[in-house]
Design a protein around this nucleic acid. Structure first.
Lengths: 172, 172
DNA sequence: ATCCAACGTTTGCGCCAGCAACTATAGCTA
DNA sequence: TAGCTATAGTTGCTGGCGCAAACGTTGGAT
């Protein structure tokens, strides 16, 4: 085993990405926990809250998160028990059901988001001057586009899966 | 709920980091699986292989990975069963034991590393021209140094799994 | 020498997630 | 209409992991 392999700049690069991600994720999780949310639950809340009618079908929710459909079933179970969202039958397709954020869920999100944004700024975006941040984000975007097929979409936000015009009623 | 919140550039930035990381991780996992390794096992192998004597104490291994000590116990159990490493009593401290990579473990690593490096180059470092890559890595390093608990020692009280006052990370 | 607090590791338990099997519905084809 | 296949969601099972308790060990204090 050649020791120098581990000094390969490619290994170093991956290490930086992984550690930056892990460090940020840990900070997020710590703040979310103060509000009684897991990272997954937070992601579910945001995905729903930004969707038309504050709702998504279970399958679409699974596609927008890193969860399988069975994982979504169980997260939604827990969050429904905690009154953060509720299931609603789909009128057109009796196989489907929507997960809909409740008022309590939206309020929880309102509680969490300011601190969440503050953390991003404190530990991530605020760590670099604007040109350096822009360069970082350009690089990340290029890697993301390469590695995440289907993530193209508008240059807008997280959900690459907006390219999933699954159902109708475009509210916003 | 204000819809514009989700278009906040800070949210976008985090989304890019998370998706780039998730995409790369998925590629890594796919290749590792071809060689019968999980990501955690690969990390354990690399951490041990680059340590003096190809060995680390369980606690130190836990500090260098994202695992708790109990997690390390179990991953070492599995890898010992698969003959990728073995435990060895610490002569100076009978509480401690070393995890030592076996020849088979080193060979497995040799099998995996070329493809691993190829994947990094194909989907990450090779996606950008050298100056852009340097800028990306500089940015990541700055964020890493900020969020990395070891680098910000003494400033905050962190959850136990974040508090890693050790020399954990010879990677970068 | 004894005590005791801290340490290293393992183990019991519970949570969470994925896979695959299952049920129910939808939609096409003839 | 009947039949076949694809789809949406849930559930049984399993494995991985963290927390906290347990156990042995260490090293310092008295």
């Amino acid at each position: 085993m050649n020791q120098n392999v581990f000094d390969d700049p490619r290994i170093t690069a991956v290490g930086l990405l992984v550690e930056a991600h892990a460090g940020l994720s840990a900070r997020f999780a710590a703040q979310l926990e103060e509000h009684g949310l897991s990272s997954v639950e937070f992601e579910v809340l945001t995905r729903l809250a930004r969707s038309p009618g504050n709702q998504l079908r279970m399958t679409d929710l699974a596609a927008q998160t890193s969860l399988s459909t069975s994982g979504v079933t169980r997260v939604v179970d827990r969050m429904e028990r905690d009154a953060l969202l509720c299931r609603r039958a789909c009128p057109n397709d009796r196989r489907s059901s929507y997960a809909v954020v409740t008022q309590a869920g939206l309020e929880r999100l309102d509680d969490v988001l300011p601190g969440h944004l503050r953390i991003i700024e404190q530990w991530f975006t605020g760590q670099l001057d604007p040109p350096a941040l822009a360069a970082l984000l350009d690089g990340l975007r290029q890697v993301r586009d390469a590695v995440h097929p289907g993530a193209t979409a508008g240059s807008t936000d997280l959900p690459p899966h907006l390219a999933r015009p699954r159902d109708e009623d475009p509210v916003t």
